[in-house]
Design a binder for these strands. Sequence first.
DNA 1: ATGAAAGCGCTAACAG
DNA 2: CTGTTAGCGCTTTCAT
Lengths: 329, 329
Amino acid sequence: MANIQQVAKQAGVSVATVSRVLNGQNSVSVKTKLKVEEAIRQLNYEPSMLGRNLRNSESRIILILIPSISNPFYLEIIKGIENIAISHNYNILLCETDSDPKKEDIYFDLVRKKMADGIISMDPAVNVDTLKELAKKYAIIQCSEYGGGIGIPYVTIDNEEASYRAVKHLLQIGHTKIALMNTDEKFLYARERKMGYQRALQDHGISVKNEYVFYTQDLGFENGQQAMRKILAIDDRPTAVFAVSDLLAIGALKEINAAGLNVPGDMAVIGFDKIDFSNMTNPTLTTVAQPMYKMGTAAAKMLIEKIKGGNVDSVILDFELVIRESTAG
Amino acid sequence: MANIQQVAKQAGVSVATVSRVLNGQNSVSVKTKLKVEEAIRQLNYEPSMLGRNLRNSESRIILILIPSISNPFYLEIIKGIENIAISHNYNILLCETDSDPKKEDIYFDLVRKKMADGIISMDPAVNVDTLKELAKKYAIIQCSEYGGGIGIPYVTIDNEEASYRAVKHLLQIGHTKIALMNTDEKFLYARERKMGYQRALQDHGISVKNEYVFYTQDLGFENGQQAMRKILAIDDRPTAVFAVSDLLAIGALKEINAAGLNVPGDMAVIGFDKIDFSNMTNPTLTTVAQPMYKMGTAAAKMLIEKIKGGNVDSVILDFELVIRESTAG
DNA sequence: ATGAAAGCGCTAACAG
DNA sequence: CTGTTAGCGCTTTCAT
């Protein structure tokens, strides 16, 4: 494996000159440049990132922290991040934390050890104190899920308003008994979405019934099934459900079908996230679309700016209510 | 940010000794070890991977090549790879190729430039010639999708037999008119699965009808819908479909439902892969389970062995036919 | 426009 | 058991 020395020798120039050619500096005469390029070709030389990275003290790697790869919600965001990253010559290290502080810490170590230049955190369960501490020395951006008021820039949507609009849609098509399938309120977005739910009901003069609010431990399919089972067992049964994730809503769909009931006839359903599968279910799912790709690109741009030493502000992006079969009619 | 020099100075020892402590060599007296550890603590020192990696000429990064992150099939495999990787102090760089040779080449460059120590390729569309060329100099393992006979170790299942068993199941529950929803036969697995399909029919004295064999361009949901539409339009309509991916099968399911037909009553369906969602559909999907997690761990172990300079053999793992509602009764 | 040389942070061979 | 030292491959002053 050739190195820069050998190229220099072959071309009859110094390593400095080779380096200049490599980095496209125009202070090299056309003639020498040609010589160097010829030598590179002959020796099949590829510059080593190892040497370059040490010299520049950077790794050109960005860490992405997600709770679980299996959750399709993150996929589009990741694509957005990746595209920006690649165009800026960064690569991404995808890190699944399982919301486990121990795994989390392994990944944090990566930036401490200079294996990564910065972090985009999408894990709502991340240890906020550690993150805050880390953010003093390293570039960190929060995406989608965030701890507010800890001074770390984030990109998100207006969760309260999104939730408000989803519930309002149900009200407008005539529903009055609307259940909320929420997750643990330790998450900021869970609290915000509940507030939107409450505000929508109140705006329509409907009082919020605690029996209609359910909490799931996780955002998965099974959690949606379980919660739906409870909802179906209520005496004064709701006619619509707003679930705070598509996976939850898809679980609900399945359970409603299993009970021999019809969506949206017997029970309208709205999800949240617009994951790919929300369009594959039967019926297709009405859902709140987050601009996931854009969230990814925004977060990546912010992080790269931060790595460069710049200052960045948090960003709140627009969402969109996508009306499909599960609330049609 | 402290470096090893400063730690050495602080502890009153040489950098070599600090390095020894760092790497857990036991040729250091307890007393000095304590001194060094104290200095590390005081200075809040974290060893830099940049220096270490250059010195060891390794990056401790493994590349995973997949055509698309959105395809849930790869997720479990990735988890398997990741767990082995982490336990061996490797990190993984997830690379989405979109089956685009240009993107592919960007990622290949990463190993040429020593940014990665090896590659696990799961992209069936990968340029086999490039891969072969690369495999001469770098550690490469193929996982799940592979080019046979090019001398690069792979881990896979017996696709012909898996397909045979799936179709045999349909025959056993009484079907005789069975369609095959296959993908482009440029892929080895597509050819193998077709052979299994043919063998099963022939074993039961049923001749293979070309009108019952469909080719989709891709393995996605929409492709399944389109193909199903064609199948439903056949004069002598099949009563069962074997699709070579779950996503294809789920698309088929949706289309059958849309046509007002019943699964499995009017049309039995079998998929392939056992992705998470195959259990969330209505009805749940009969499918061929690949041991994805195990495939991941196997591939990772093989790659790490290869990186170490060892010699590894290809591996064929077991599959399992999971019978669910879409072929029940 | 080009070259000599220092040094990024670390490990390991060698010497003691 | 510990220290000295060379060097991994590269970029970048500072001269010329």
